[in-house]
Design a protein around this nucleic acid. Structure first.
Lengths: 209, 209
DNA sequence: GTCTATACCCGGATAGAC
DNA sequence: GTCTATCCGGGTATAGAC
């Protein structure tokens, strides 16, 4: 998506600028969310004028979705070579706890994007479908290997993990003392193969921050 | 809450108008969210002018928080006399699945309100603190009665439930095929007292809609 | 390519007539 | 209490000079 054509030749500088703007926009959007950010602020950040910025992205919307895609790429990279889905989600949570603005942006935008008319609607719907699908697959395989409990459908569990992640982000935004990672790991623990009733000693160690 | 007493005398009509506006605002906000709604639209809805509306609520913010409180009152009423926390959350989810606009408003606003400067910030922070506290209590008691598993802290579990609820709402907004209630009940099921390994027959019946 | 200037729109809030 | 008219601010987008 957005696939910026790659002209060779004199356009090189332009492409670099574009990247520069993208980075700045990511920062600014991250800090103030969608609504709170103006083109002018992003432009300032890059060190150019608002009108100059519009030379690269024809509209605000265009810039927004470009930023989203960019952010996503970073995320994917960070969790690409990771073990179990539960772990990946926990990791991301821990990482996000250092990126308040990004979390804000994400929560805000994904909600706003539920409107089919929103410029980022397609982006988010496919994003969630993909994520859910991937996680579901991962969980299914883990079930086959008896690594996790098998009495819940992978699909339900995948949706749970995603919901947990998003919901905790929201709660954390409102109250930074909320322990995103710990809570997710607690969840992961109860999805391990269920031990005999008495033997739960391995379950309750070292998570309660 | 809101308890509109009915003063006779000159104020009666005014109070009714206020209620009328509140209802209209709830509808409009529900449909287009915070950002997407204008005073004019709400006013139109009521059948009066934007300026006229401002006669009852001095500012947009004031109206917004009033609406929030109103909505909350309704919610509380709906889950007041309900059994276990997990059940209550599942119920609410089922109910919400018929109130897309409201869900949208809630998700949008709670995210936006994470900004300490947002007019609804205080409202949402205390709301979550209260909810989490209540649920935690309920779960603690359930643990004491051995109705649910005891190897997860009530606090973590409470946060999980809330996160699950919110996160699923978001996913559902983006993809209405997401089964909010079913997923929550699946979660509730894995929080029941853990049976012996072989005996999980009671766990996987009648949920996968 | 980048700027300044500006047109334009939208939404909230205010003033003042009725 | 309610309206019309108006102001004002913020934001995007455009025109046109350099």
């Amino acid at each position: 998506m957005t696939t910026p054509r790659k002209p060779r030749g004199p356009y090189r500088k332009g492409l670099e600028r574009r990247q520069q703007i993208l980075r700045a926009a990511l920062e600014v959007f991250s800090e103030h969310g969608d609504r709170g950010s103006s083109l002018k602020e992003i432009a300032d950040h890059v060190g150019m004028s608002q009108a100059g910025l519009l030379h690269y992205f024809d509209s605000r919307e265009e810039l927004l979705v470009a930023v989203l895609a960019e952010r996503d790429a970073v995320d994917v990279e960070a969790t690409a070579n990771v073990m179990t889905p539960g772990e990946a989600v926990a990791r991301t949570a821990a990482h996000n706890a250092r990126q308040r603005g990004l979390v804000d942006l994400f929560v805000t935008l994904s909600a706003a994007a539920s409107d089919p008319d929103h410029p980022a609607h397609a982006f988010f719907t496919s994003r969630y479908a993909n994520l859910a699908g991937q996680i579901e697959d991962g969980l299914g395989k883990a079930q086959d290997r008896d690594e996790i409990r098998t009495d819940v459908e992978p699909n339900h569990m995948a949706r749970m993990l995603l919901a947990l992640s998003d919901g905790l982000q929201l709660q954390w935004l409102l109250d930074p003392s909320v322990d995103m990672e710990g809570t997710i790991q607690a969840f992961n623990r109860i999805c391990l193969p269920v031990a005999a009733e008495g033997d739960t000693s391995h379950l309750d160690r070292g998570d309660d921050s």
